[in-house]
Measured scan of single mutants.
Amino acid sequence: PEDLERKVRELQKNGVSPEQIEKILRRDGVDEREVQELVKKVS
């Protein structure tokens, strides 16, 4: 979803590592495939 992507970009802009971003997304209940997609987009 659009807002998730925005969140991921925000986190990355704040210097959060892709690994941390993955953890955060998983903790928020984002589905694994979605997590991978989002992280791939920003890394």
Rank of each mutant, 00 (worst) to 15 (best):
R33C: 10
R26W: 05
I21V: 04
I21G: 01
V30S: 04
K40S: 12
S43D: 09
V42T: 08
G29Y: 02
E32G: 06
R33W: 10
R27H: 12
D31F: 04
L38R: 04
R6L: 09
K40Y: 01
E37P: 00
V30K: 03
Q20M: 12
G15H: 05
S17M: 06
L38I: 14
S43P: 06
V39Y: 00
V8D: 01
K7H: 06
E2C: 14
E32T: 06
P18E: 07
V30W: 15
R6I: 08
K13I: 08
V42L: 12
P1E: 11
P18W: 15
V35D: 03
E5W: 07
R26T: 13
R26Q: 11
K40F: 01
L25H: 02
L25I: 05
V42A: 09
S17V: 04
E5Q: 09
R6K: 12
D3Q: 10
K41Q: 11
S43C: 12
L4C: 06
D28C: 15
K41S: 11
K41D: 06
S43Y: 08
E19Q: 10
Q12L: 15
K40R: 08
E2D: 12
R33A: 13
R26N: 07
K7S: 04
L4R: 06
S17L: 07
E5P: 05
D3C: 13
L4H: 05
K23W: 00
Q12A: 15
V16C: 12
N14I: 10
E5I: 14
L4F: 06
E22T: 06
L11I: 01
I21W: 05
I21T: 01
P18S: 10
E5D: 07
R6W: 07
K23A: 14
L25W: 00
E19C: 10
Q20R: 06
S17I: 05
L38E: 03
R6G: 08
E2P: 09
E10G: 05
R9L: 04
P1W: 15
P1Q: 11
E10W: 11
N14E: 10
V39W: 00
R6V: 08
E32Y: 06
E37I: 06
G15V: 01
K40N: 12
E10K: 05
E34N: 09
